[in-house]
Write a protein that binds this DNA or RNA. Structure first.
Lengths: 127, 127
DNA sequence: CTCTCTTACTTTACACCATAAAGTTAAAAT
DNA sequence: ATTTTAACTTTATGGTGTAAAGTAAGAGAG
C-alpha cells in the first residue's frame, strides 16, 4: 500500500475521540454489557458479566451515572434491594461514537506496511 | 437478533485480554504510529503524530521500553541528539493480539446495538 | 572565549483514579 | 435476640497519566 499524505499530519494518531470515561476497561465492559440489554441489567448480573467486585462496580456505575451515560433504578425484589442499570440515550450515542473511533484504530492497525520517513540515514537496520 | 446462551456467561464482557499497557490512550497512539512505520520514528515525529508533550512521550516510551514493546536507539543528526523508537517483534505481536481483542469489542457493539459502521452509529432510535 | 538561546529530551511532583478492604443497611434464619 | 446473608457504599491506598521544571549540549552573539 502506498503511504498517503494523511500518515504524516500532526495528531494523526492522537485518537482524540477515544472518550476517557468509556475507554477505561471496566467501564467499557459495563457499557458493552448494557448496550446489549436495553431493558437494563441488575447489579449482580453486571458484576458477573464484567467480572468486577462489588465496590469496583459500584464506583464505576457512580462515575457513569455522573456522566449521564447510565441511569440507575432502585427497587426491591423479594424484599431485597435491587439496582437496575441501563444506558441513557446519551450513553448509547457516546458509546456508538466511541466504537466508531475504535474501528479507526483497528483499521489503522490493518495497514501494517513498512514505509520510510525522515532521518533514514541514522536508522539502524537490525532488530 | 436472538440472544444467545453465550450472552449470559460470567466474564463475557470482562475483556480480559485488553492489555493495560497498550490500552492506555497515549501508548495506543504511540504503538499504532510505530506499527505503520517499521523503520521507526523519531521522538519529534512521534510527538507530532500523537499530539503529546515531551515529558509525556518520554515517560510513556520508557514504560513501553520497560515492557519490551518498543526499543530505543540514540544517535545524532546534525550534531544533535536524536532518539529513534521502533516496535520490537514482541511489541508487534502484542499489539496485533490487542487489536484482535478490540475487534471483538467492536463486533460486540455492532451485534448488540444492531448497527454497523461509523456511519450508522448516530442514527436515532427509540428509548 | 563566555554567555545566552535553542533543541531535545528527562525527571519530578501532583492530582486523579482504579481497586480492594472495610463499613452499612436490612431482611432472613437460627 | 443475634447471627448470617445479600446488596450494595464508602474509605483508603497504591499506581499512573500529565504538566511543569530541570538537564545537557550544540549554536550563535558579542
Amino acid at each position: 500500500m502506498k503511504p498517503s499524505e494523511s500518515e504524516k499530519i500532526a495528531g494523526r494518531y492522537a485518537y482524540d475521540g477515544l472518550d476517557r470515561i468509556i475507554h477505561e476497561k471496566a467501564r467499557l465492559s459495563i457499557i458493552a454489557s448494557l448496550a446489549g440489554h436495553s431493558e437494563g441489567l441488575l447489579f449482580n448480573e453486571l458484576k458477573e458479566l464484567c467480572s468486577l467486585t462489588d465496590g469496583n462496580l459500584s464506583r464505576h456505575l457512580a462515575i457513569l451515572q455522573e456522566a449521564d451515560l447510565v441511569q440507575m433504578w432502585k427497587g426491591t425484589r423479594n424484599k431485597r434491594p435491587q439496582t437496575l442499570a441501563r444506558l441513557t440515550e446519551h450513553g448509547r450515542r457516546r458509546f456508538l461514537e466511541y466504537v466508531s473511533r475504535l474501528e479507526r484504530v483497528v483499521a489503522d492497525a490493518s495497514r501494517l506496511t513498512g514505509q520510510s520517513g525522515a532521518g533514514a540515514a541514522l536508522r539502524p537496520r537490525t532488530t
